[in-house]
Write a protein that binds this DNA or RNA. Structure first.
Length: 536
RNA sequence: CGCGGGAUAGAGCAGCCCGGUAGCUCGUCAGGCUCAUAACCUGAAGGUCCCAGGUUCAAAUCCUGGUCCCGCAACCA
């Protein structure tokens, strides 16, 4: 079998319900996966949850429940949201999964046997109240420990360390030789600089069970668990079927069909050091070759209303008029799952930061989706049914405006493929909306609603309607990675659907046959207006 | 001189790599249209492209210096 396109997201930490950043990353990866499928390639999309760790243990204790029960409860809210948002995953990660635990222990044992893991005593400042060691970052500006830490004392602790330093030189060479390891390029630069400064430090990979019991036990010392690095990063490989002892029976995919991963979709906060330094070195130390290293796409962050509000002393946060809050569920309540997907994907240039504000959310939805795209479909179907009761008809009527629209539509698939080489999905969407604008202009300028008054213009009207309906059919396919259910709704109304195994290269003028009768128009995106604007 | 990003019309952004009339969306103003979700289409006003130098026939774009904003800095998500 040909290698599938293997795409993953960061796994979400289950110490709270999902927020907009979680949703963006999953929607982005899902749209990428759908786009690649549309080009005809098989895809495996993996996402899931990081359930271990100190914060979960502490939060659970505070709530008076076991970590197992707490995780179970919080974990459910993630897949529920992904279902709602049409995030179609092929595999699902839960780090408490015994199949995962087995591989983590296998890798740790291998590295231990190879002398890559050793035990060392270190000392540091420990907060008794928070049950954690503190770093200099936790100090107050004057160097003291803040009152939130309670009593702070110097403590000694023995832990296991991974010989990161052995591989620092390899990593530098690897990064220099593989500029496509990280996208966008500026993130790679940052990583290379960061790797160049690194060197001597090894990575602490354990916690004594006295302090943290909620994790995967070290296979060579039952008094310790491993945490975050070997626990979470390894999901990309364990759930891809790496060293699967029950191949075929485990329910995991065949590793050779997936690896190396084509794209780890992650946020900019976890590139350095986790995904850019630890992860490739872990893989390298376990014997993964340079040619089999994964690739990484780094996306930006959503800032809440320009982040100015939290800083300025005038704390007057803008009151929300339509949204209950800025959580993904509240936004989807207002503008639908595809409305949210569209906003997230269109508003953020992949890799950059963007602002989250109610104003922008409503603008994107009401303008792009309702006025431009939705209204285009609506007016088109109304006219088609009125003027072409016998369905689409052949016509040799043509003109510059017709040619212009055809040329714009014909350019869409190629432009989309080009833009998606660097995952610029916002460009694909902007292109689609621009084409819908052009179709609106085409209608206004050719004025079929005037021509239709005289039966002598039948051929001209037929040509115009054919052009707009074809345009809409093309657009429905091109927006489908970003808005899968909207694509289906458009196609239902058009009375057309792409046949099985339809790919982008099949997207050519002439999708709809003569005699085709478009369906009933239904508003795709009802306007969502703030209360004071509904007045009339 | 720790690293990286940003500064372009009232707002949000593109253009910068590969110099050549400063562009898009929203908002504002005026007009058109009526098939359509009070939607659509056309036109206008609005900018010292952060500052100061330099290179050039020509700089938003290239070079140097500076200012301000944001993020990250390798033992704990």
């Amino acid at each position: 079998m040909a290698k599938k396109f293997y795409i993953t997201t960061a796994i979400d930490y289950t110490n709270g319900p999902p927020h907009i950043g979680h949703a963006y990353e999953k929607v982005l990866a899902d749209a990428m996966a759908r786009f690649v499928r549309l080009t005809g390639r098989e895809v495996y999309f993996l996402t899931g949850l990081d359930q271990h760790g100190q914060k979960v243990q502490q939060t659970a204790e505070k709530a008076g429940v076991s970590p197992e029960d707490y995780v179970k409860k919080i974990s459910a809210s993630f897949p529920a949201l992904w279902d709602r948002l049409d995030v179609r995953r092929d595999g699902w990660v839960e780090t408490t999964d015994p199949r995962h635990k087995r591989i983590v222990q296998n890798m740790l044992q291998q590295l231990y046997d190879a002398g890559q893991i050793y035990k060392k005593m270190t000392s540091g400042w420990y907060s008794v109240r928070q049950e954690q060691f503190l770093s200099d970052k936790d100090r107050e500006p004057d160097g003291s420990w803040g009152p939130q830490w309670g009593q702070v004392e110097e403590r000694e602790e023995e832990n296991y360390y991974f010989r990161l330093s052995d591989h620092a030189a390899w990593l530098k060479e690897f990064l220099a030789a593989h500029p496509d390891f990280v996208f966008p390029a500026n993130r790679l630069t940052q990583l290379i600089n960061s790797a160049a400064e690194s060197g001597g430090t090894d990575l602490c990979i354990s916690r004594p069970k006295t302090r943290l019991r909620w994790g995967i036990e070290l296979p060579f010392d039952s008094d310790y668990v491993t945490f975050v690095w070997f626990d979470a990063l390894t999901n990309y490989i364990s759930f891809a079927g790496f060293r699967d002892p029950d191949k075929g029976a485990s329910g995991l995919p065949a590793f050779e069909d997936l690896w190396p991963c084509d794209c780890h979709v992650i946020g900019k906060d976890i590139l350095i050091p986790a995904h850019g330094i630890y992860w490739p070195i872990m893989l390298h130390a376990c014997g993964v070759t340079d040619a089999d290293m994964p690739k990484i796409l780094v996306h930006g962050f959503w800032n809440l209303e320009g982040r100015k509000y939290s800083k300025s002393e005038s704390v007057e946060a803008k009151p929300l008029r339509v949204l209950a809050d800025y959580g993904p569920n509240a936004i989807a309540d207002a503008i639908g799952a595809d409305g949210l997907r569209y906003f997230l994907l269109a508003e953020m240039a992949t890799g950059q930061d963007a602002d989250l504000s109610e104003e922008r959310i409503l603008l994107r939805y009401n303008k792009d989706l309702a006025d431009i795209l939705g209204n285009l479909l609506n007016r088109t179907l109304n006219m088609a049914r009125k003027y072409l009761p016998a369905g689409l008809a052949a016509s040799d009527s043509d003109g510059e405006l017709h040619q212009g629209l055809r040329a714009a539509v014909a350019a869409l698939p190629g432009n989309a493929v080009e833009a998606m080489k660097t995952w610029q999905i916002h460009k694909v969407l902007a292109d689609c909306i621009d084409t819908a604008r052009l179709a609106n202009e085409f209608i206004d300028k050719t004025a079929p609603f005037k021509l239709a008054k005289d039966p002598a213009n039948a051929a001209a009207v037929a040509a115009i309607m054919r052009h707009v309906v074809e345009t809409l059919a093309h657009l429905s396919v091109l927006i489908s990675p970003a808005m899968p259910s909207t694509a289906k709704r458009i196609q239902t109304q058009l009375g057309w659907a792409p046949p099985d195994r339809f790919t982008l290269s099949d997207l050519k003028w002439g999708l709809l046959p003569d005699g085709h009768l478009p369906g009933e128009p239904q508003p795709l995106f009802p306007k969502v207006l703030p209360p004071e604007e509904v007045k009339k």
